[in-house]
Design a binder for these strands. Structure first.
Lengths: 384, 384
DNA sequence: TCCTTTTATTCGGTTACCTTACTAACGTAT
DNA sequence: ATACGTTAGTAAGGTAACCGAATAAAAGGA
């Protein structure tokens, strides 16, 4: 049932680029006859298609083969604090249909199930009716997720009583479903379709309503012993690391994430009214407002300290700032400067370009990986 | 030349425990005839020896096979700030001979070469003359080592002008030589022969003359993008993370490592004379001296903050404290308490038991691994 | 037109496994 | 003691996945 190493190697190569048989032979190290056999079996399984021949060169023109990206579909789901997003993509990770709605606190599982059905239908329509079943689903949520679990635990969370449980969702859906931390998935997104493309070792620091860190090391996610790696809400930074007020939820997060920043903004002196939310604060800073700029620079220094701490521990090649707060370009300067001052060899710091879709994109791409490894262990499906 | 997967699997199993052919068949999943073939070829290569038969059970008594640990020898070298240690071990990592000398600042390479020769000769004598060549050498040094390099760089170091270069040493020695950071190797030591045996994901925090962190994640060393993971001298902790005085060498290290602790000790109030060195400080604290205990508790809180920072980033299963300062039991309480106060799920904190030989032992065990992977790619040597 | 170049397939052979069936060695019950 | 059951090891034959070499097919250019 499981396909052999030669088929796996050929598929891996074709996922990188379309290729001819001689190219595949050179790339995989297998002989030409072996590659031909692999092509035959993969074509029969519907995983590989012929894209015609090249032309122009001397000698017989080779046929070009490519992944059949429509062999199955996958879904990515991002359950956020405010929005829940669902996307359905083909095996290249190309998103065919996508929707979002406000998250319903208690009925998340039904909501997600309905959204998946709807988006799947839309994707099928996009493909012109010859759609096919979902091969895998990856769900992004905040919280700490034990390996293989469908439960996300929070040390402290008002909305959900400390837990999000997607067990019922998994049991009611046909394709295998995996739950992964949202910040980790955002890092995957950056690694495969964002500013960290081609960078094996980097961190993605997300600052928004909360604060979290996704760590990619040598192309692999770093999850830690209990899936809690990157839960840096508790970093003992700042003037009062031992303060008792926000210990439960983490002093650093309380100071640095949206609530803390807004607090400081509202108790600062303003020419006009204080800003109502963080977006307005950054908007004013962009307009040149002195008070706003000072607050942003201060926030940048705060974040900079976290970046310094993280860099000294994991030595990334790149630091990506994301999340509602972190993705503001205005922060870059003071963050970079803090690093430059405190680190002997500071890593470059850049801003995420995936906006608020990082986790969703990471979920989709992870689902693609899951689908491929499933297909490789039992290649029996084919539809288009 | 390279040995096949069946031989590799059999060797891997035998490295864990001696075993009979049926046991090997069950453990590796290969059939009995295949195991027999593997045994024949491995015995011929001198890598496996017959240890006789079991007796007592009903049925024919199986032969027991074991790794031939004497098939080659390996060397571990630890170049420390004050002492340079060399050990030669067999393929089980069993140390057969060991020496240490004070490190000679400039002539390290010659010194190490001489020590290796001497210790190798001693080890050969221990084996009763039928010794054999060294198959691999791993050298432990402080500093940041680029992948595959023989140079260790320091952001800041008085003794060595910022670099230790072992290229000449490697070129003059026959067996392959690998250079690795001393704290990383100490973590390897803890993982394989220390308090972290069987723990896949843990950190080893070494505090002595300097301060460093070795990170083990899922059984693998975490080196970071430039080999600088765990260089936590620059952690922006404490009251004045931005202080300029010790930026070059790292404020956290300056405060927390030996020099900083001694500074504080000497400017504290004492009934008698202030302690001359860190060892004396801890000795007095053990005797119950109030001032000493206060300083130790304060140091523990300082270290505790670093542990909290590290735990929130990498989520280890265990924290091991080592190094001349870190291994003092007296610190444990205040470190653990700081973690308990600031982390929602604090990892247990324990003290290293390898004393100042952690890096050496890690170097030896890494050299054993290197030797095995070399033997697996070209198994031609055999001696005893 | 034929020749050169490159692609694709066919064919025979090797390797590394497997299963089955046997022989060898041991403890124990008769 | 001898026969018997159990377990270890070996011999023989089969199969799948690969290889290299030879050959057939398809293209451009002399």
């Amino acid at each position: 049932m499981a396909m052999g190493p030669r088929d796996v190697a050929v598929l891996a190569e074709l996922r990188l680029r379309d290729a001819t048989r001689p190219e595949l032979a050179a790339a995989t190290g297998f002989s030409k006859p072996t590659i031909s056999e692999a092509i035959v079996s993969l074509e029969a399984a519907g995983l590989v298609v012929n894209r015609g021949r090249t032309a122009g060169a001397v000698g017989r023109n080779p046929r070009v083969y490519a992944i059949n990206a429509r062999a199955s579909l996958v879904a990515g789901v991002d359950i956020g604090g405010t929005n829940t997003r669902v996307a359905v993509a083909d095996l290249h990770g190309q998103i065919l249909a996508e929707r979002h709605e406000r998250t319903t606190g208690s009925r998340v599982q039904q909501q997600v199930r309905r959204l998946i059905r709807q988006v799947h239908k839309e994707a099928t329509a996009v493909l012109g009716g010859d759609g096919c079943a979902l091969a895998s689903i990856v769900v992004s949520t905040p919280g700490v997720i034990d390996r293989g679990s469908t439960q996300a635990r929070f040390a402290y969370n008002v909305r959900t009583d400390g837990i999000i449980d997607l067990t019922a969702l998994r049991d009611r859906l046909d394709p295998p479903l995996r739950v992964e931390n949202n910040v980790n998935l955002a890092a995957v997104g950056e690694a495969r379709a964002g500013v960290a493309e081609g960078v094996g070792t980097f961190v993605h620091l997300a600052i928004g309503a909360g604060i979290g860190l996704g760590i990619m090391h040598g192309g692999r996610l770093l999850r830690g012993a209990h899936g809690a790696a990157g839960e840096i809400a508790y970093l003992p930074l700042g003037r009062r690391p031992l303060a008792k007020e926000h210990r439960a939820s983490g002093n650093f997060e309380a100071e640095t994430a949206a609530a803390g920043l807004l607090d400081r903004a509202q108790s600062a002196r303003w020419d006009a009214d204080p800003p109502q939310d963080v977006a307005e604060l950054f908007h004013r800073a962009e307009q040149g407002d002195r008070a706003a700029r000072r607050l942003v620079a201060d926030e940048g220094r705060r974040i900079g300290l976290a970046v310094v701490a993280v860099c000294s521990v994991v030595d990334p090649e790149l630091v990506v700032l994301g999340g509602g707060i972190g993705r503001n370009q205005l922060l870059l300067e003071s963050v970079s400067q803090t690093c430059a001052e405190l680190l002997p060899a500071p890593s470059p710091v850049v801003t995420s370009t995936l906006a608020d879709r990082g986790s969703l994109i990471g979920a989709v791409l992870s689902a693609v990986d899951d689908a491929w490894s499933l297909l490789q262990s039992n290649p029996k499906e084919a539809s288009s």
